[in-house]
Amino acid sequence: MSLCEVAEKQEQVLETKISDLENAKTMCKKMLESDELSYLNLKVEQYITELPEYWNKNKHIFKLDSVSFLYILLQII
């Protein structure tokens, strides 16, 4: 694999990560704007406008157990 190919692949990986970070940032921002944010009344669909599309795009995260999910989410944030 040439250096150019490696750089192109890395650029794609970074673009995906940037996009994921922007999505996580937007969701957190919307959550923080909520008056009564708690685990008891958390409804993801309030913060994600296109839930099925978001679910399909992030299946690798949602398949994890809750501890792993929170760990990854906190790393993204």
Rank of each mutant, 00 (worst) to 15 (best):
M1C: 08
M1A: 10
M1I: 02
M1D: 10
S2W: 10
S2A: 07
L3W: 10
L3A: 11
L3S: 15
C4I: 14
C4F: 10
V6F: 07
A7P: 03
A7Y: 07
A7K: 11
E8R: 13
E8T: 14
K9S: 12
E11Y: 12
Q12V: 09
Q12N: 09
L14S: 07
L14R: 06
L14P: 06
E15N: 07
E15S: 08
E15V: 01
T16V: 11
T16A: 10
T16P: 02
K17E: 07
K17T: 05
I18H: 02
I18N: 11
S19H: 05
D20L: 09
L21C: 02
L21V: 00
E22K: 11
E22W: 05
N23H: 13
A24R: 03
K25G: 09
K25L: 12
T26H: 08
M27W: 06
M27L: 15
M27F: 12
C28R: 04
C28Q: 06
K30P: 05
M31V: 04
L32M: 11
E33M: 07
E33N: 14
S34I: 02
D35I: 06
E36K: 14
E36I: 06
L37S: 00
L37Y: 03
S38P: 01
Y39E: 11
Y39T: 13
Y39R: 12
Y39F: 11
L40C: 06
N41H: 05
N41I: 03
L42T: 09
K43L: 04
K43W: 04
K43E: 14
V44I: 15
E45N: 12
E45M: 07
Q46N: 15
Q46A: 07
Y47S: 03
T49M: 10
E50H: 15
E50D: 15
E50N: 14
L51S: 07
P52V: 04
P52W: 08
E53D: 09
E53G: 03
Y54N: 08
Y54M: 05
Y54V: 09
Y54C: 11
W55D: 14
N56L: 10
N56W: 09
K57V: 05
K57H: 10
N58L: 01
N58Y: 09
N58F: 01
K59Y: 07
H60Q: 10
K63F: 04
K63S: 08
K63M: 05
K63T: 04
K63R: 10
D65S: 04
D65A: 04
V67M: 03
S68G: 04
F69S: 01
F69Q: 15
Y71D: 02
L73M: 02
L74R: 01
Q75Y: 02
Q75R: 09
I76N: 01
